[in-house]
Lab assay of single mutants.
Amino acid sequence: GPGLTDLFKTEKAAVKKMAKAIMADPSKADDVYQKWADKGYTLTQLSDFLKSKTRGKYDRVYNGYMTYR
């Protein structure tokens, strides 16, 4: 089956995709945050998933999740 690194890459891609969806349409934020909360994502995990070469690119999404939880 898929190894943990593959799983991480898949999760990371999914999280980034959802983060971009929030940035494009902030009204989606609560739905996405709820999904992440259901998956039990911690802020540390989210921070790892949303690492970007562009500093602060996903800060709004991260901060939103922090206040959501």
Rank of each mutant, 00 (worst) to 15 (best):
K35F: 12
M18P: 00
Q34P: 03
D38K: 09
A13V: 07
G40N: 06
S52M: 05
V61P: 02
D25E: 06
Y41E: 00
K57N: 05
K16F: 04
A29V: 03
Y58G: 01
S47F: 09
Q34C: 07
M66N: 07
D25N: 07
L7G: 11
E11G: 04
Q34S: 10
A29D: 02
K20Y: 06
G40P: 05
F49E: 01
A37Q: 08
K28E: 04
K12D: 03
V61F: 02
K9W: 08
A21K: 06
T67C: 14
G64D: 04
P26A: 06
K53H: 10
Y65H: 00
K51F: 06
N63S: 10
V61Q: 01
M66V: 14
S27A: 09
D38T: 10
R60P: 08
K17N: 07
P2H: 13
G3M: 13
K17S: 11
M18Q: 15
K16G: 02
Q45P: 00
P2I: 11
K51H: 10
Y41P: 00
D6L: 08
K20P: 00
Y65N: 00
P2K: 06
A13H: 15
T5S: 11
Q45V: 07
T54A: 06
T44P: 10
V15N: 02
L4E: 12
D38V: 09
M18H: 05
G1V: 14
T54G: 09
L43R: 03
R69F: 08
G40H: 05
I22C: 05
T44G: 08
Q45T: 06
Y68E: 01
K17Y: 07
D25L: 03
K51S: 09
K9E: 11
S52R: 04
Y62H: 04
K9L: 10
K57C: 04
K35D: 11
Y68W: 15
V32A: 06
G3K: 07
M23L: 14
R55G: 12
Y41R: 01
Q45M: 11
Y58N: 01
D38Y: 08
L7V: 13
K51P: 04
A29P: 01
W36K: 01
A14P: 02
F49D: 01
K16Q: 11
K39V: 07
S47L: 08
Q34N: 07
Q45E: 08
D30G: 08
W36A: 01
Y65G: 01
A29G: 06
D6H: 10
L7T: 13
A37F: 14
E11P: 03
T67E: 14
A37G: 04
K28N: 10
G56Q: 05
Y68I: 02
K57P: 04
K57F: 09
G1I: 10
A14L: 14
G3Q: 13
K53S: 14
V15I: 07
D30K: 12
R69S: 07
D25C: 09
S52G: 10
L43G: 08
P2N: 12
K20D: 14
L4D: 15
P26M: 07
K12A: 14
A14D: 08
F8D: 08
N63C: 15
L46W: 01
P26R: 04
S27W: 07
S52Y: 07
A21P: 01
Q45G: 03
D31L: 10
F8C: 13
K20W: 09
K51T: 11
D6K: 07
T42F: 02
G64Y: 02
I22M: 09
I22H: 01
L4T: 11
F49H: 02
T42K: 04
G1W: 09
K12F: 04
G56W: 06
L50F: 04
V15G: 01
D31R: 08
T10M: 11
A29C: 05
K57S: 04
K39A: 13
K39L: 12
A29Q: 06
Y65L: 01
K12L: 05
F8G: 07
D59S: 09
V32G: 03
T44K: 14
G1Q: 11
F8H: 11
V61N: 00
K39D: 05
K51L: 08
D48A: 15
R60E: 09
M18I: 03
L50W: 03
P26E: 09
K9V: 09
E11K: 03
W36H: 00
L43M: 10
K17I: 09
K12N: 04
L7P: 12
L46G: 00
L50E: 01
D6W: 04
G64V: 01
L46S: 02
D38I: 09
D59I: 10
R55D: 13
S27V: 05
I22L: 13
V61S: 01
L46T: 01
L4G: 13
A14I: 13
G56D: 07
T10K: 14
K53P: 09
D6C: 15
K20L: 12
R69N: 07
F8L: 10
T10Q: 14
K9T: 06
Y33T: 01
M66Q: 14
G64C: 04
T42Q: 03
Y68K: 02
D38N: 11
Q34V: 06
T42L: 03
G40T: 02
K53F: 05
D30N: 14
F8V: 09
T54S: 09
Y58S: 01
K57Q: 09
A29M: 04
F49T: 02
Q45A: 06
K35G: 09
R69I: 15
T54M: 05
V15W: 02
Y68Q: 01
K39Y: 09
Q34G: 10
T5C: 15
K51W: 09
V61D: 02
K20V: 07
F8W: 15
K53G: 14
T5Q: 10
R60V: 13
R69A: 08
R69G: 04
L7K: 10
M23A: 05
G3H: 15
W36E: 01
S27Y: 04
F8S: 07
A37H: 14
V15D: 00
S47N: 09
K20Q: 13
Y58L: 03
S47P: 02
D6N: 08
L4S: 13
S47D: 06
G64H: 03
L50M: 03
T67F: 12
L46E: 00
K12I: 05
S52V: 08
V61E: 01
M66R: 14
A19L: 02
G1F: 11
K20A: 13
T10I: 15
K17P: 01
T67A: 15
T44S: 12
D48W: 14
L50D: 01
T67Q: 15
K9H: 08
K35H: 11
Q45I: 09
K35M: 14
T5P: 09
Y41H: 02
R69H: 09
T67D: 12
A13W: 10
R55Q: 15
W36T: 00
Y33V: 01
S27I: 04
V32H: 04
K35L: 15
K9G: 07
D48L: 15
R60K: 14
L46H: 00
A29R: 05
R69M: 15
A37Y: 13
K53A: 12
Y33G: 00
K28T: 10
L46F: 03
N63H: 12
Y58V: 02
K16D: 02
T42I: 03
D59V: 07
S47G: 08
Y58Q: 00
V15E: 00
K39G: 04
Y33D: 00
T42C: 03
A24K: 13
D31Q: 12
R69L: 15
E11A: 06
L7D: 14
Q45F: 04
Y62Q: 06
K53L: 06
L50N: 00
D30P: 11
W36G: 00
Y68H: 05
L4Q: 12
I22P: 00
M18Y: 06
T44M: 14
V32L: 05
D6F: 05
V15C: 05
A21H: 06
K39S: 08
R60W: 09
Y68V: 02
K57W: 05
I22Q: 01
P2W: 04
Y33N: 00
T5R: 11
L50C: 02
A29L: 02
S47Y: 10
A14K: 10
D38A: 13
D38P: 00
R55A: 12
Y65C: 01
K16N: 04
T67M: 13
D25S: 04
T67S: 13
T10Y: 09
L7S: 15
K9D: 13
M66F: 08
M23P: 00
G56M: 04
W36Y: 01
Y58R: 03
T44F: 09
K57M: 07
I22V: 11
A14S: 09
K17H: 06
D30S: 12
K16E: 06
D59E: 12
R55S: 14
M18F: 04
M18W: 08
F8K: 08
R69Y: 11
A14T: 08
K12Y: 04
D48F: 09
R69V: 15
R60I: 11
K20S: 08
T54R: 11
G3Y: 08
G56K: 05
Y41N: 00
T5H: 11
T5M: 13
D25W: 04
T5K: 12
Y62A: 05
P26L: 06
K35W: 08
M23D: 03
Q34T: 06
D31K: 08
D38M: 10
G1H: 13
K9Y: 08
E11S: 04
L7Y: 11
D6E: 11
G3V: 10
K28V: 14
Q45R: 07
D6G: 07
D38E: 14
P2F: 06
Y58P: 01
Y33Q: 00
A29H: 02
Y41W: 04
Y62E: 03
K53Q: 08
D59K: 07
Y65D: 00
D48E: 14
K51D: 15
A24F: 09
A19D: 00
L43Q: 04
S47V: 08
Y68G: 01
Q34W: 05
M18L: 08
V61A: 05
A14H: 10
P26S: 08
L46Q: 00
D31W: 09
T44H: 10
D25I: 03
K35T: 14
